[in-house]
Write a protein that binds this DNA or RNA. Structure first.
Length: 267
DNA sequence: AATCTGTTCAACCGCAATTAC
DNA sequence: TGTAATTGCGGTTGAACAGAT
């Protein structure tokens, strides 16, 4: 016995949204907030699927959205994050305030992929003698958390897991929460009840992989420091003998510390 | 002016994970 | 606990537009 059957898809509008449809959707979300996407078409008479409403809102109508004019800094950040994460567009978008995964994906496919391929080609020619000189893409595990005990358990799992993980707090457009380095929950919106984090399993890569990913000035390259959220670490990483002294010496568990920490570890 | 070709980007689709019943 | 609905993600499509011929 599951949920009540879904409404028929017949009669739903497709294609470009009209200004009137935009107004209806915007007004509804302003009044009732995001989520329950399928209800929107029911309650407003919009002949659009819930999926379509969600996409239209997230990619176009959100008030905090930035469209077009991707700056050279943002461009650089996209390239670096793509090098690190691959086609994880939502994850990359999470590090670029006001940008959507769709916009970044489009921008990558239309502007950056050719340039990166060209650069790789020229790099390969010049570094032909070192075939092992390639970077790796880190696979992350996304988990959804809220402030209940189960979510604490999830975080605790990663805190106690020997394969300690880097926590990438999502700069989620739905809320402004993040996990602080001490794992207390920072909640700037008491009405929101959950958030996502992405975890990189350290078992998946070696230090050299990370070093080859060229993290340098990742944070600094983004001009919008107000919205920039630092990468943070699990408690284990802070306690780990390999890391502790260095990170505490740098007194900040964010990416600004990465290059020097890694450099010192290599010595 | 008409047609062709390439580019852009909003929107759709299918799938997997999560959530609700 | 099983099943179906919902949500979110990445890949793909196609309409609209611009520039070339």
């Amino acid at each position: 016995m599951g949920r009540s059957p879904c409404c028929s898809k017949e009669g739903l509008n497709k294609g470009a949204w009209t200004a009137r449809e935009d107004d209806i959707l915007r007004d509804y979300i302003t009044l009732h907030g995001e989520g329950r996407w399928r209800n929107i078409s029911k309650k407003t008479g919009l002949m659009r699927s819930g999926k379509s409403c969600r996409l239209r809102w997230l990619n176009y109508l959100r008030p905090d959205i930035k469209r077009g004019n991707i700056s050279p800094d943002e461009e650089e950040l996209i390239i670096r994050l793509h090098k690190l994460l691959g086609n994880r567009w939502s994850l990359i978008a999470g590090r670029l305030p006001g940008r959507t995964d769709n916009e970044i994906k489009n921008y990558w496919n239309t502007n950056l992929v050719k340039r990166v391929q060209h650069n790789q080609h020229t790099t390969n020619i010049s570094a032909n003698s070192s075939p092992n000189n390639h970077h790796r893409v880190f696979k992350t595990k996304a988990i959804k958390c809220n402030q209940d005990s189960q979510s604490h358990h999830k975080i605790q799992h990663f805190k106690t897991n020997p394969d300690a993980a880097i926590v990438l707090p999502m700069n989620d457009h739905n809320n402004n929460k993040k996990i602080e380095s001490d794992h207390t929950y920072s909640n700037s919106d008491n009405n929101s009840s959950d958030f996502r984090v992405d975890l990189i399993n350290l078992d998946d890569f070696s230090f050299s992989d990370l070093l080859n990913s060229d993290f340098s000035d990742l944070s600094a390259s983004n001009s919008d420091h107000h919205h920039q959220q630092p990468l943070v670490f699990t408690e284990e990483m802070l306690q780990d003998n390999f890391w502790t002294a260095d990170i505490h010496d740098h007194s900040a568990s964010d990416l600004n510390s990465f290059p020097s920490i890694f450099e010192s570890r290599r010595e």
